[in-house]
Design a protein around this nucleic acid. Structure first.
Lengths: 158, 158
DNA sequence: ATTTATGCAAATCGTTTGCAAACCT
DNA sequence: AGGTTTGCAAACGATTTGCATAAAT
């Protein structure tokens, strides 16, 4: 299931977002239940990727195990992306190819906090070409790339 | 303790490598014990970052808990780097600024396998400038960056 | 009705830790 | 001796899973 072609990007309208999510779930015979809709809403509103703990703080009606299960379903259907940081918590955000907003992460090695940023398109393209060339040479197919900064935020710098 | 300046890079001589490791440990009042030396040797010989399980397979004389403890010490003193992939296992390799070999990772989303690659110096520099600019704007200090490819290796492509 | 999702509690598993013995210096 | 490291076994904690109930089609 290629996730980089043929999809409509969501521009910012919540309706459109939910519709797109429903479509992707439906394509995999999955239902867009209230629990899953709640997750998509939380992630759409969050200014950065959320941990499961943060999800549960923001919506106390949700159950931990269902959140884990639903995030797995949403990830498998291309509605959310899992973000790996340096700490032990998985974080989730709306899938890039759903929002159409390609970006990278500033990750704080102290608190695990995450902030988004982008790089100039020409550089992004140049790097992409290198990535594909490198992958081809090694027999890899490119899924996506990570171009993240690991550092210390103003607070954690001590 | 800045880890990007003032250090001598190891070119390939095992003696030099161990000497450099000993120096870094000593700077933090840590001893270069046989268990730690064994880890450095394993990582120096490995063609890719190793998980703890792989370390234990390659040297059955080592104990799991000591391996974890020693990897933590080696990481804190800048002798090894922890590599975060998409799977649940931490991987370790000799620190970049110890080997002087800056590189990136091709990570297989299927088996978690890791392969190294580098990008042209001019691109690396251009990206670095962007990273520093972005970080400054957000009040972050840059530790290091990740520019990794997540994909599927020839075997896992199915 | 039948299939799928949920909530609770228990299990999983990589990693961490307490403590006594072994090791350095 | 005095402090550090090690090995074993027990503890931790994020995530997963079994199973009975609730919800959706």
């Amino acid at each position: 299931m290629p996730r980089t072609t043929g999809h409509t990007h969501v521009t910012g309208d919540p309706e459109e977002l939910h519709a797109a999510a429903a479509v992707r779930l439906g394509a995999d015979d999955q239902r867009y239940t209230s629990g899953r809709r709640a997750l998509v809403e939380l992630l759409a509103d969050a200014p950065h990727p959320l941990t499961v703990a943060e999800v549960l703080e923001r919506n106390e009606g949700l159950t931990q195990s269902s959140v884990y299960r639903n995030l797995a379903v949403l990830e498998a259907t291309g509605v959310v992306d899992r973000v790996v940081t340096e700490d032990e918590f998985a974080r989730y955000e709306l899938a890039e190819d759903l929002t159409g907003h390609h970006h990278h992460h500033l990750i704080c090695a102290g608190c695990g906090g995450v902030e988004d940023f982008s790089v100039p398109p020409d550089l992004e393209t140049a790097m992409d070409e290198v990535f594909h060339k490198v992958a081809r040479r090694s027999g890899f197919s490119v899924g996506h790339h990570r171009m993240d900064i690991i550092g210390w935020c103003a607070t954690c710098r001590t």
